[in-house]
Simulated scan of single mutants.
Amino acid sequence: MNNRKIDSFFKRKACEIEREERDEEIIIPTSESETVLENPTIEEHHGFENSLERDPGKRPPIWQYPPNQVDAIRRAYLKWGPYQIHLENYPLSGNEDHPRRFQHTWFSIFPSWLEYSPSEDAAFCLPCYLFSKKLSGRPGSLVFISMGFRNWKKVRNGKHCSFLKHIWKDPCSPHNNAMKACQDLLNQDGHIRNVIQVKSSSQRMNNRL
């Protein structure tokens, strides 16, 4: 005991130093992993989004998807926006004496929700589709969700316009409730992403300390 130098009591063993260095490598995230956590890219969900049907006349009802996937599907459709395809000539339909067709100028009047299905030659509402429920809603709303609207004569009908009647003046109408639900979902998504970023930054600082 007397032959041992006093500084030997304060020297750190090599195995302890190696163990701490190994632990630090495990705890501290790399810059690459930090990028994945804070900034998820579209490519990560590219395959998932490609499996969704854009044509509103072909897509299945939203309530047929697994409940744990519905919000992700809603976000994907909201990222795309309403399916507003511009055709040189939309199909004629209605009365043979005075046939009518869909007008692409209606997209500029109702840009936030109006969709057109080329397969069904019909108009749909994206927010009402995203937050529809099985066998629920007013009959007029279901037309814009699953059946599709085709009576173009009633679009140019002043205050009786079918598109305006679908929206309704009531702020609590099914359509306006669906619009609000879309906005709440997007705001919630942004809030969650910000929380993850803050906690990730805090965790990095703690790990480095």
Rank of each mutant, 00 (worst) to 15 (best):
N2K: 12
N2D: 13
N3Q: 14
S8F: 04
S8D: 09
R12N: 14
I17E: 02
I17Q: 05
R19Q: 10
R19M: 05
S31C: 05
S31V: 06
E34P: 13
T35D: 11
T35G: 01
V36Q: 03
L37T: 13
L37D: 01
L37Y: 04
P40Q: 12
P40F: 05
T41G: 00
H45W: 05
F48N: 09
E49K: 10
S51A: 13
L52W: 07
L52R: 08
E53K: 10
G57A: 00
R59K: 01
I62V: 03
P67F: 03
P67Y: 05
N68L: 02
I73F: 06
I73Y: 02
R74L: 00
R74N: 00
R75C: 06
A76W: 07
A76F: 02
Y77T: 12
L78A: 01
K79R: 14
W80T: 15
G81E: 07
E88F: 03
Y90L: 01
Y90P: 01
Y90S: 02
L92F: 10
D97E: 13
R101Y: 01
F102N: 06
T105Q: 03
S108M: 04
S108L: 03
I109C: 02
I109G: 02
P111E: 12
P111L: 09
W113D: 00
W113S: 00
W113L: 01
L114C: 08
E115D: 02
S117F: 04
E120K: 15
A122K: 07
A123W: 03
F124N: 03
L130H: 00
S132T: 00
K134I: 09
L135G: 01
S136Q: 15
P139S: 09
P139T: 10
P139Y: 00
S141H: 07
S141N: 11
F144G: 11
F144L: 08
F144Y: 05
I145S: 01
W152L: 08
K154R: 07
K159M: 04
K159W: 02
H160F: 04
S162P: 00
K165G: 07
H166F: 05
K169V: 13
K169C: 12
D170C: 01
A181V: 08
Q183A: 03
D184K: 11
L186I: 15
N187I: 09
Q188Y: 13
G190E: 12
H191S: 15
H191P: 08
R193Q: 10
I196L: 11
S200A: 14
S202N: 13
S202P: 15
Q203H: 06
Q203C: 12
R204K: 15
R204Q: 11
M205Y: 06
M205R: 15
N206T: 08
R208E: 10
L209P: 03
